[in-house]
Design a protein around this nucleic acid. Sequence first.
DNA 1: TGCCAGGGATAAC
DNA 2: GTTATCCATGGC
Length: 277
Amino acid sequence: MFVKGANFNVKQIADSGQCFRMNLIEKDKYSLIAYDKYLELSQIDDETVKLSCSEDEFKDIWIDYFDLNYDYGKIIQLLSDGEDPFLRKITDFGKGIRILQQEPFEAMISFIISQNKNIPAIKSCIEALCSRYGEPKVSTVENNNTYYAFPTPYALAQAESTDLLQLKTGYRDQYIIRASQAVMEGLIDFNYLKKCDSTEALKVLKSVHGIGDKVANCILLFGLHHIEAFPVDVWIKKVLEEIYHNDFPLEKYDGFAGIVQQYMFYYMRCCPDKSFG
DNA sequence: TGCCAGGGATAAC
DNA sequence: GTTATCCATGGC
């Protein structure tokens, strides 16, 4: 089926570092595994994306996954009309990005793995984790190909440390196991964390061994849809230092700071011409 | 080869 | 409260 509308760019989303199971298949065409489903997306033109799913599946899963009920145009207009020249530039550069609503558990484990790794390494580690602990599935999209769902909390709570080390998790093995156990035990309740305010949710997430400020904010933003969350990694830190001299007025973007953060991240990672200012 | 990566825990100041 | 050190490993 086809999705029409501005501010939905598959390449920009795939390269925005939110999810790690979205990959280029051929020019303008990407595969994605999420919510136990396999999906292919093709960018037909600036305002058209083709999805390989049925309309029912689109309504059930992907419309929320891609946050298609949220008006990004309004935020983009606001930033484009603002007085900050850097924000005007990066908003124009990344205006096809959307904040994904990923499965909270997948976001939690993925961003625990992400620490001190680059994106290609994160991707291969997560793929290894999925093929080892995830449920095998068969897609009807193309050639009945087999893929693996993201592992359940139950599966990872019982994982062996030595086994995880073979999947290149490095020193994060116990982080993964203990976080999964916290979910199984109900110490982490994603439904509650979605509903409560982000300060409270941040505190709860950081109570898990291996989840610090940055990872917790990524879980908030990409798994719990707290779009006010503002994760600061090495790239964002660079923006805050080099562009704003550590005086970025975050409070001006209250309520949607996470979107601004994504424009910053995507620009820093992907703009071929990073002439600042 | 050495440095960096969507960091965090812990020890040491 | 803030800073230094260590962690395991792939990517480039």
